[in-house]
């Protein structure tokens, strides 16, 4: 209840969501979204807590506030860095305009597609490429490797701010923009081709340690004298198919995942077993 001293403007102003409230909600979302992630409703509590600065302003009546809080405690899960900021921004805009009823369908409609888009961008297109370069640098003893991974993390984080405001300004219109265009499929194709070629080069480069020490002794006659010549198997292989072993092992692992549908853990254990066997018979 407003106190009698308050002027009418002050009462109205109190109900208005200020840019400061919006910023506060955004930072809550960026810093803590998944702190209370759980199997039951996943990011729900983090989402609701991030929305509180808005809810408190918009619903001065306690029962209305509780109703709005409950609405945000339903199951929610999406990609936290690329997917959630625009969704959260759009729902902040809706809640600020007291259009809370539209929030549920927006969240449910967008969280699936945005999880797919965000996970693909981060987990398939960008991280593996950066990680493989970073790891190569680190194996060469360079600081630049970990620095690259650290900076990549910072870039994802910095993107969360503009992505939030994108959702906040576009609101519901966001859905059509994501559905249309087809920019993502173009970028995906481009990144795929780039990635395939780089991986083709990285397999022999990163796994260059996988060479065989096996040697053969051959008796040859040089100018009528019998001499024993030592031939290293790896040297012979290098002239035919350099990096044969890395290619074979990657091919084997790919076959186990792609054709046999084995889980990564089983492929890992198989590779460890293969390493011990080939190591003990002297192949490696």
């Amino acid at each position: 209840m407003p106190s009698p001293e308050d002027s009418l403007e002050q009462v109205i102003e109190r109900a208005e969501v200020t840019p400061k409230d919006v910023r506060s909600a955004m930072w809550r979302h960026i810093i803590t979204l998944q702190w209370s992630w759980n199997y039951e409703r996943m990011q729900a509590l983090g989402y609701m807590w991030s929305m509180l600065p808005i809810i408190k302003k918009v619903y001065p009546n306690k029962d209305d506030m509780i109703g709005a809080m409950k609405r945000h405690l339903t199951f929610y899960n999406t990609n936290p860095q690329i997917g959630s900021p625009p969704i959260f921004g759009a729902t902040v805009a809706l809640e600020s305009q007291k259009m809370g009823d539209a929030v549920d369908s927006l969240k449910i409609g967008l969280m699936g597609p945005f999880a797919g888009i965000g996970d693909t961008i981060q987990g398939v297109l960008v991280r593996p490429m950066v990680a493989v370069f970073a790891a190569a640098l680190a194996l060469a003893g360079s600081w630049a490797g970990p620095a690259m991974m650290f900076v990549l993390g910072l870039i994802w984080c910095a993107l969360m701010v503009p992505l939030f405001y994108l959702g906040y300004r576009r609101g519901v219109g966001l859905v059509d923009e994501v559905a249309g265009e087809g920019v993502l499929s173009k970028v995906t194709e481009w990144a795929t081709i780039f990635g395939m070629m780089v991986v083709g080069g990285f397999v022999p480069s990163i796994m260059s340690g996988l060479t065989t020490p096996l040697q053969f002794h051959k008796t040859v006659e040089v100018a009528g004298k019998a001499t024993t010549k030592t031939i290293a198997l790896q040297d012979t292989l290098n002239q035919i198919l350099p990096s044969l072993f890395p290619v074979l092992v990657v091919g084997l692992a790919f076959w186990m995942i792609h054709k046999l549908k084995l889980s990564p853990i089983w492929v890992l254990l198989s590779l460890v077993a293969l390493a011990f066997i080939t190591g003990s018979i002297g192949l490696f």
């Binding site: 593996p128 493989v132 991986v199 990285f202 397999v203 990163i206 796994m207 340690g209 996988l210 890395p246 092992v249 990657v250 084997l252 692992a253 790919f254 186990m256 995942i257 792609h258 990564p264 492929v267 890992l268 590779l271 460890v272 293969l274 390493a275 490696f284």
Partner: peptide
């Protein structure tokens, strides 16, 4: 030396 094969695969 063999395990990067898992990541590539």
């Amino acid at each position: 030396t063999m395990l990067p094969a898992l990541g590539f695969a």
